[in-house]
């Protein structure tokens, strides 16, 4: 009974973690950008979904659509206003662009947080669930929304896999991540590929933000923590490795759930943090990363 409960609950949380971190790892894999405003994208989408779905009363589905749109807009803004100007800057030495992207996105995250807190206050809200009600699954009562969340997450993950591995566009993305210069030499326009990948990132972050917001609630104050946990999962799995990210998300999700059920809910985060330090120390490239 307890085992099944832990399995179900851990699965739901882990899947959300995976989806939440996926865009972060994708954008790093393809364009080498660590977006420290990542949590901001998630929360903006969730807040807009809440505003449209609940405050304006247009319902969960229109709200979710607006949220995803907000995710795309915010991702584009991150790229066009912050990342691209830094990457193309003539005054910033090439060797230090990475640091400037980090600092720039960090500042952008602060701005998103302040804007949200000004418009919506810091009070946490929940996004309207797509499917209300509960399901009795082998004797464990679980909200239907939890199943929907897991199902949507896996569909999105599947689509992304197909996109990367089965389409021409995906091959270009892969090529861009492995050898950007080679791709340019072949006559492809890198900037278009990057733009595209930021749009995909926006969609992923939008969906993840809305699902997180309906399952766990959201608030502008969550932005740094969300960025932090995506960062942890991605590094634990190996930077830029999509399968590593999925694996790490499940490792962290289940460790947290086990701790919460078997030890104490208030110690939930501690074992995962310790594990993170240990893994980084013993295997700095992450669980599934290549050096």
């Amino acid at each position: 009974m307890l085992v099944l409960q832990i399995l179900i609950d851990g699965f739901a949380i882990s899947t959300l973690y995976a989806l939440g971190a996926l865009g972060f790892t994708l954008i790093f894999g393809v364009s080498g950008v660590l977006n420290l405003a990542h949590g901001g994208l998630l929360v903006v989408s969730a807040m807009i979904a809440y505003y449209v779905g609940t405050r304006l009363g247009l319902g969960a589905y229109i709200g979710a659509g607006a949220g995803i749109l907000a995710g795309i807009v915010t991702a584009m803004a991150t790229y066009l206003l912050i990342v691209r100007p830094i990457q193309r800057s003539r005054v910033i030495p090439a060797r230090e662009r990475e640091l400037f992207v980090l600092t720039g996105t960090l500042l952008w995250g602060v701005m998103l947080q302040e804007m949200l807190s000004y418009i919506f206050t810091d009070t946490p809200i929940t996004v309207k669930p797509l499917l209300p009600g509960i399901v009795d699954f082998l004797g464990v009562t679980t909200p239907a929304n939890e199943f929907i969340t897991a199902a949507i997450s896996w569909v999105v993950l599947g689509c992304l896999w197909l996109l990367v591995n089965r389409t021409k566009m995906g091959k270009q993305l892969l090529a861009a991540s492995i050898n950007p210069r080679g791709l340019t030499l072949l006559g492809f326009e890198l900037s278009r590929i990057y733009l595209l990948v930021w749009i995909i990132y926006g969609v992923l972050a939008g969906i993840a933000g809305i699902l997180l917001g309906s399952f766990l609630g959201t608030s502008s104050e969550f932005i740094p923590a969300l960025t932090g946990s995506a960062f942890s999962i991605v590094v634990l799995g190996g930077l830029g490795s999509v399968s590593g990210t999925l694996f790490a998300a499940y490792v962290i999700g289940y460790i947290e759930t086990l701790t919460a059920y078997l030890v104490s809910p208030s110690l939930r985060n501690v074992p995962a943090l310790v594990l993170l330090i240990l893994v980084l120390y013993i295997r700095p490239q992450g669980l599934l990363g290549r050096r």
Partner: peptide, 15 residues
């Protein structure tokens, strides 16, 4: 039962 104020998933507690 006391839980950390940054808890977001209360399922274990409610179970």
């Amino acid at each position: 039962i006391r839980f950390s104020p940054d808890t977001t998933d209360f399922t274990p507690i409610y179970q």
